[in-house]
Design a protein around this nucleic acid. Sequence first.
DNA 1: CTGTTCAGCCGTGGATCTACCGGTAGATTG
DNA 2: CAATCTACCGGTAGATCCACGGCTGAACAG
Lengths: 152, 152
Amino acid sequence: MTETLDPTDWAILVEVQRDGRVPLTELGRRVNLSASATTERVKRLESAGIISGYRADVDLTRVGYAVLAVVRLKYPGNKHEPLRKLLADRFEILECLRTTGDDCYTLKVAAGSMAHLEQLVNELTEFGSTTTNLVYSQTQPYRGPQGPPAEL
Amino acid sequence: MTETLDPTDWAILVEVQRDGRVPLTELGRRVNLSASATTERVKRLESAGIISGYRADVDLTRVGYAVLAVVRLKYPGNKHEPLRKLLADRFEILECLRTTGDDCYTLKVAAGSMAHLEQLVNELTEFGSTTTNLVYSQTQPYRGPQGPPAEL
DNA sequence: CTGTTCAGCCGTGGATCTACCGGTAGATTG
DNA sequence: CAATCTACCGGTAGATCCACGGCTGAACAG
């Protein structure tokens, strides 16, 4: 459990989060390690589940999703299966966080138009009351951890 | 602008979002295309900005970030530079969405402990009133578009 | 001190992948 | 019809991946 990550591991993590397709030889060059040592470390990070996968980042607006919204869902019941099913079916729901507080779920939703968003929110309103906020802009598409957490 | 994506392009996007490190030859096999044709399409998607990058997914809990939270920030002023600076400095702020509604910003924040989160929220409270919700769980780490948006 | 163990690193060589080339079929245009 | 364009294919040289064995230094027991 207590996998201690040394500075080289963190350097690798920073690099692969920035460029997930960097060849292992080039990665080794950047962190001052041979290709084989780099390969071993990356494989260790992968099989330990620290690197859980690699993914391409797709620009939503350029593929037709002009509208991004944050929808908070106040969900009175505790029948979670129908909601899980909706999440599995509707790929427009990019992310779903279950949280503390009045709004049990916080969703990130992409839609092609306001009409499309309206339809999605209608489906969600089946489950409870919703609060929707449109997204003007997001600073970074995503950003991962760059080092160990501050110790307090 | 109106880059029309055919079903093969979408198949490629789905695959590289699921496995960003798949070799182009294997990717071609999966979408029934030769390696060179696949390479051309991927490069076109990249240079058109549709694929904006590749990144490794790091499991936050396994690298010491035990706490995930959604912080909404009500930001009365319109001096945005100091906030931008904080975002650039604090890598614990994973995502920052500027939205409509009372809460101008919605942030996703990772912390190593409640004390660490408290400190981060204190820094944010310099800018305005905050609402913090802890995250119990998230369905998928992330999910991108799997096809064109519904037409309405 | 000496020998053992082990983790981490390196270099090597065969298999695989990438980048680039020319060639072809079908659609479009003049 | 000829010219052109797009998307595809196959082939090849060079780069990369991957599994292997050897090397080194630290930790440790005798």
